[in-house]
């Protein structure tokens, strides 16, 4: 029986992060995930907040909400779920390793969206435990957007074979044809990734974005990501995770400087494809390495028969931060 927790207003991430810091007992990860769904009914985005988000991420302001903005809307619901009693994983050190979204049809500015988030697919990983946070936006009962964020918790372990191959495949609304969902890992030590066991074999129609055919991508931009990008994105997205805002907090978690929000770099890549986005599409991203701020990253992209592939790397291209695959 799924317990439904219906919110009356959009929660603020700041309060939820503060709550996450408060000491409290958590059930052991072996107990599994609580059967719970967080909902917010009839949420409307305003032109002002979408415009501010668009300007930071590079979208042109249209009536259509960027898919990544719908993630932003469900993110406080994710935090609500993960800080509610009975959730086995702590927020501290939680790493967003991959994200996939399906846009069924454009969601519009000012449209009343019913938002929901649940957690599923708790599974072992070589470096800890993976969990999927699955979000959905509906309009009058009809799903317009679904998103799956895969998070890695490195404080916990779970008995069993580490996720890899088919076992990392997430079940759920995105399973059909959406490709990588629980796949690759986030190399927090910023060394060459040895997580190949978690990278699925080519599962997207046009091949894995991390596959050998990345050579066909062509450089489409050098992006200067400024030192205050974390603060600017936090201001428009509400994600005030200190690792993106303060060098002190970043150092406490093992990074020399602040790091960019993964969903911010994702949004910028999606924004550069905005003019070519069809009404309905699927997009998957793997966050392979953190992007330290400030830095200049190389954006490379290629059109393919049914969409686009893209990646962000360092200048030389030997360090891949993000890969994206879009079909539609």
């Amino acid at each position: 029986m799924v317990e439904v927790l219906e919110l009356t207003a959009m929660p603020t991430a700041l309060r939820l992060y503060a709550k996450a810091l408060a000491p409290g007992r958590r059930p052991h990860v072996k107990a599994g995930l609580p059967e719970r769904e967080i909902r917010l009914i009839g949420h409307r985005s305003t032109v002002g907040e979408v415009s501010a988000y668009d300007q930071v991420c590079g979208f042109v302001l249209t009536d259509r909400l960027p898919a990544t903005w719908l993630h932003v809307l469900t993110f406080p619901l994710q935090l609500t779920l993960m800080t509610a009693p009975g959730f086995p994983l702590g927020l501290a050190g939680l790493v967003h390793v991959s994200n996939s979204m399906v846009q069924h049809r454009p969601a519009l500015v000012g449209e009343a969206l019913d938002l929901s988030v649940r957690a599923e697919n708790l599974r072992p990983h070589r470096r800890g435990v993976l969990v999927d946070l699955v979000g959905e936006a509906r309009v009058a009962g009809e799903p317009v957007w679904q998103g799956r964020s895969v998070y890695l918790n490195r404080q916990q372990t779970l008995a069993g074979a580490p996720a890899g191959g088919e076992t990392s495949r997430s079940r759920g609304p995105l399973a059909a044809g959406s490709g990588k969902q629980g796949g690759s890992g986030f190399d927090v030590e910023a060394q060459s990734s040895s997580l190949s066991s978690t990278v699925e074999p080519s599962s997207t129609p046009a091949g894995s974005p991390t596959g050998p055919d990345t050579a066909t991508l062509h450089t489409a931009g050098w992006w200067r990501l400024p030192a205050d990008l974390g603060r600017r994105y936090a201001a428009v997205s509400g994600d005030v995770n200190p690792i993106h805002l303060s060098a002190v907090a970043a150092r406490a978690l093992g990074f020399p400087r602040t790091i960019a929000h993964g969903m911010c770099t994702h949004a910028r890549v999606l924004a550069s494809l905005q003019a070519r986005l069809p009404d309905a599409y699927e997009v998957s991203v793997d966050f392979l390495k953190p992007v330290l701020l400030p830095s200049t990253v190389r954006f490379a992209a290629a059109a393919q028969p049914h969409g686009h592939r893209a990646q962000l790397t360092n200048r030389t291209g030997d360090k891949v931060f993000l890969t994206l695959s879009l079909t539609g």
Partner: peptide, 17 residues
Amino acid sequence: GAYRSATNLDLLTAAID
């Protein structure tokens, strides 16, 4: 008014689209 958050680029793109 309605377009206080929109830039010239946003508006012209909307008209062309």
